[in-house]
Computed example of a mutant assay.
Amino acid sequence: MTPDELTLADLPIRDDLRGRTPYGAPQIDVPVRLNTNENPYPPSPELVGDLAEEVRRGAGELNRYPDRDASALRADLADYLGHGLDASRVWAANGSNEVLQQILQAFGGYGRTALGFEPSYSMHPIITTGTSTEWIGGAREDDFSLDPAKAAAAVEEHRPDIVFLTSPNNPTGTALPLETIARVLEAAPGMVVVDEAYAEFAREGTPSALSLLPSHPRLIVTRTMSKAFAMAGTRLGYLAAHPAVIEALLLVRLPYHLSTLTQAAARVALRHRVELLGTVDALRRERDATVEWLRGQGLTVADSDANFVLFGRFPERRAVWEGLLERGVLIREVGPPEWLRVSIGTGEEMAAFRAAMEGVL
């Protein structure tokens, strides 16, 4: 065999990785991209200027390693989250995916299991498998909600080392009541991770699992700056947990995993959080209007507390997805069969989506 003939199948990769495909959303250059749940509003010139100044200051010390523990950033994140948190109870990494990976490295591994309720975030089982942890897929109700008693029963049956909950859930947008999270916490023998990547988009009055942290030391609440903060390019995820959990993550984190520039960008974003989060209300209104419009077209739509909407049902969803793409609108073919997901964009982008949908329907 020549080097040019070598394929992935010829490499001695782990058996449990053979036949799998990597995570990825289509990256297609079209006028309207509504497939990756990004915040469509770019940072203001003032924020960009502030960030440029911070980078200029930090650039003079790029020959030195960054703050290994990101102490100042963690203090800023704790201040943003509130709930009596301080830097010792907050951790940050390169996107929430690295946060999840570190959790699995510390509490999962060979011979251990993780349980999640599907459909849910597709990276949960991917990262679980990547850390040699066995994935157990639990079920949701027909409306994508999670029955507290059934969820607790699944935990009691499988006794997983880690339980993943998502609120709001991706790709369905469904938020979890605190009662459901509390029931799972009572039943779980190990760690419970509540993924709140879209928490800022939840309806007013929707409680956060952060309020459960004082009485549940094995609870971890993860967040990200990629969504509501409109900082997807920064790659900054973080979590809140008991200080002992943070100590466990220090055992597996790579040294100097957060660059000086990443830490600077995240701190600038937190200083400008009033501006950045000022787009959330507009996106909520656009989300609710999109749900109403889609239902007006006779489609089935999942209730959403996120910045995206899951809708269907299409016996040939690929044909609908392709029809939208032909009209310059890219959405996501993801989730259960017969369903599609559209991220919420600007008013102009959503008008283009509606026009394209009318053409397809």
Rank of each mutant, 00 (worst) to 15 (best):
A265Q: 07
A265T: 07
A266N: 08
R267M: 07
V268N: 03
L270S: 07
L270M: 12
L270F: 11
H272I: 01
H272G: 00
L276P: 00
L277E: 01
G278I: 07
T279M: 12
T279A: 13
A282D: 06
L283M: 14
L283C: 01
R287K: 14
A289L: 15
E292V: 14
W293I: 13
L294T: 02
R295T: 07
G296H: 03
G296M: 11
Q297F: 13
Q297H: 13
G298N: 06
G298Q: 09
L299M: 15
L299W: 12
L299K: 03
V301S: 00
V301I: 12
A302M: 14
D303C: 14
D303F: 14
D303P: 14
A306K: 06
F308R: 09
V309D: 02
V309C: 04
G312N: 05
F314R: 07
P315H: 07
E316L: 13
R317N: 06
R318T: 04
A319C: 13
A319N: 07
V320I: 11
V320M: 01
L324N: 03
L325K: 09
L325W: 07
E326M: 11
R327H: 02
R327P: 00
G328Q: 03
L330I: 02
I331T: 06
I331M: 04
R332Y: 13
R332N: 14
R332V: 12
E333M: 14
V334A: 14
G335D: 02
G335M: 07
G335I: 05
P336C: 08
E338V: 14
